[in-house]
């Protein structure tokens, strides 16, 4: 998870292509979601459902709820980012940060 997080952060910070930055952001998000899901794990625990053969100790269901919410949030951020990238592309003619900064000067 740490490696995944670091890879994502590296991409966000160093890549000049806006689309790649968004991909990096998504990699970071996946890392954090992975961390949350694993934190809910209980050794030898069963799924938190009522039914045959399913007995305590149960795995924590809260972590899954958190991750679901997190995924929804991440999805909306990504969607908005993609729309904005489209707008930058149509108004500035490029999505490479180097080009955009050069044009400003």
């Amino acid at each position: 998870m740490v490696i995944l997080f670091a890879v994502g952060l590296y991409i966000v910070l160093t890549k000049q292509n806006l689309l790649k930055k968004i991909i990096g952001l998504n990699i970071m998000e996946t890392a954090v979601f992975g961390l949350i899901v694993t934190s809910g794990m209980v050794t030898g625990g069963s799924p938190p459902l009522l039914g045959q053969g399913l007995e305590p100790p149960y795995a924590s269901p809260i972590a899954h709820a958190l991750v679901l919410t997190g995924i929804v949030v991440a999805l909306s951020v990504t969607a908005l980012a993609l729309v904005l990238i489209l707008r930058v592309q149509s108004e500035c003619g490029s999505i490479e940060l180097d080009d955009l900064l050069e044009r400003e000067e």
Partner: peptide, 10 residues
């Protein structure tokens, strides 16, 4: 504005 919004978003 578009670039500023994207920067803000990232």
């Amino acid at each position: 504005a578009a670039l500023a919004a994207l920067k803000y978003l990232l």
